[in-house]
Every structure is written in structure tokens, then in C-alpha cells.
Amino acid sequence: MLEIKGLRAGYGGVEVLRGIDLSIKSGEIVAVLGSNGVGKTTLNKVLSGVLPASAGEIVFEGRSLTRASAVDAVEAGLIHVPEGRKIFPNMSVRENLELGSYRRASKNRASNLERVFNIFPRLRERTDQAAGTLSGGEQQMLAIGRGMMAEPRLLILDEPSLGLSPLLVEEMFTLIQSLNAEGLPIMLVEQNVVQSLETASRAYIVENGAVTLSGPAETIRNDPELKRAYLGL
């Protein structure tokens, strides 16, 4: 579904991604794991058309997105829920959600809104509330709901558990599994290694802008290289 080959990108003269190879098949949850500063968010920005690639190739459902704009990526159904939620705090919950269908699936806005409210009943209760007054967990629900409004073909979740309480983290990973069970492929970009590997079918470990370990999530979970990458052991 998504094929990335030799992807390179950076900022100014600083190269951050140093030849990333990665693929996602239909129906999968694939975890992309790494500590702060290894290039995970940069990878998401390139896939979303926000940051240009300096080399390499991105193919999504048979279509090249290597030099695509952010508009092109959204219209293709490659939907990115960014790190830090990036909601519009002074707009209502409903307005935030409706903006999710601005470039894609606008004709189905009403039915998709109802679907999001069924997934996140708390958002229905806060429809007219300013998004900035929601709790951290509710804001993350809103960010994912906004992404769902665009009827994603592939959903990229960037650090969805960041800043949440342990109980809400559990809820978030359960939600990710539920969305995937409905057939939605998900690229899960996380620092939470343990739960990500329990949730995903496959995983990639990124260090210094390159993939150093990849394979079935269960295999990686038991690989001593994982401890070296994260703990220096």
C-alpha cells in the first residue's frame, strides 16, 4: 500500500533522514519506533507533503507521492494526525471535525461526523465546546476524529499516547486496534515501545535517520538489539 525507498530529507544543510526503506500493506498496523530526534516526525512531514524529500521514492497505492504537495497527499487519502494534536483551540469541537473534511470526503461530512461521535461519545457531549478547553485525552480524540473525517486510506498517528495518563494510554491503543479491525491500515509512530509492539503486526526501529531493525513485532520485541537501541545495553 505504501512503499518508501531510500528516502532522504532534512532542514537546510542538515540531513535528518538518511535512506529510509519502509513498507505498509493493506490492513496492517505498522509501528515506527525511535527515541526523540531520530527523524520520526521528519518522516511524517515528508509523507504528508509538508517537507520535500531530497532523494528517494514514495509510492502510495501505486501512485508516486515523492514530490506531492500536502494537498495531493490528503486527496490521495494519506492522512496524518500530527504530534501534539495541533487542534484549533478557539474553534468548537464540531468546527475542528468539519475542517477534517475540507479537502476530502466533504460530501459525506454529516455521516462521517456521526461515525466520529459514535467512536468518541465524549466529543458528542462537547460538540459546541471550545477545543482548547478539552482535556489532553479529549484533544487527542478530537485530533484522531478530525483525521477520520477525511476517510483515510492510511492513517498516520504521530505519538498518539504522548502526555496521556496510563489509563488513557490503554484506551488509546485499544482504539487503534478497533479502528484497524474495521480495515483501516495504520502507521503508528511512537516512543512507547512496549505497547506499540503489542499492538502492531510489524515494526521498524529508527536510529539517526535510518532503519536499523525491522520485522514482525513479536520478533523485534524479543530481539536484544532493541535493548541496545533504547537502553544502550
Rank of each mutant, 00 (worst) to 15 (best):
P89F: 07
P89K: 09
P89R: 03
N90T: 14
N90Q: 13
N90Y: 14
M91R: 14
S92N: 09
V93S: 08
V93N: 10
V93P: 12
R94I: 13
R94S: 10
R94V: 15
R94H: 06
E95C: 02
E95P: 05
E95T: 10
N96K: 09
N96S: 04
L97G: 02
L97V: 02
E98I: 04
L99R: 11
G100Q: 04
G100D: 07
G100A: 05
G100T: 09
S101R: 01
S101K: 01
S101V: 05
S101Y: 00
Y102P: 00
Y102V: 03
R103Q: 10
A105E: 11
A105S: 15
A105D: 15
S106C: 06
S106F: 11
S106G: 06
N108F: 07
N108I: 05
N108M: 13
N108E: 15
R109P: 02
R109T: 11
R109F: 01
R109A: 06
R109V: 14
R109I: 13
A110M: 09
A110T: 15
A110R: 15
A110V: 14
S111K: 12
S111G: 00
S111W: 01
N112M: 13
N112S: 10
N112L: 13
L113R: 06
L113N: 10
E114N: 11
E114Q: 06
E114Y: 01
E114C: 01
E114A: 08
R115Q: 08
R115N: 12
R115D: 05
V116K: 01
F117W: 06
F117C: 02
N118E: 05
I119Q: 03
F120I: 04
F120D: 03
F120S: 00
F120H: 06
P121G: 03
P121E: 04
P121I: 12
L123E: 11
L123I: 07
L123Q: 05
R124H: 08
R124S: 10
R124G: 10
E125F: 06
R126Q: 12
R126K: 14
R126I: 02
T127H: 04
T127A: 12
D128I: 04
D128M: 09
D128Y: 11
D128N: 15
D128V: 00
Q129D: 08
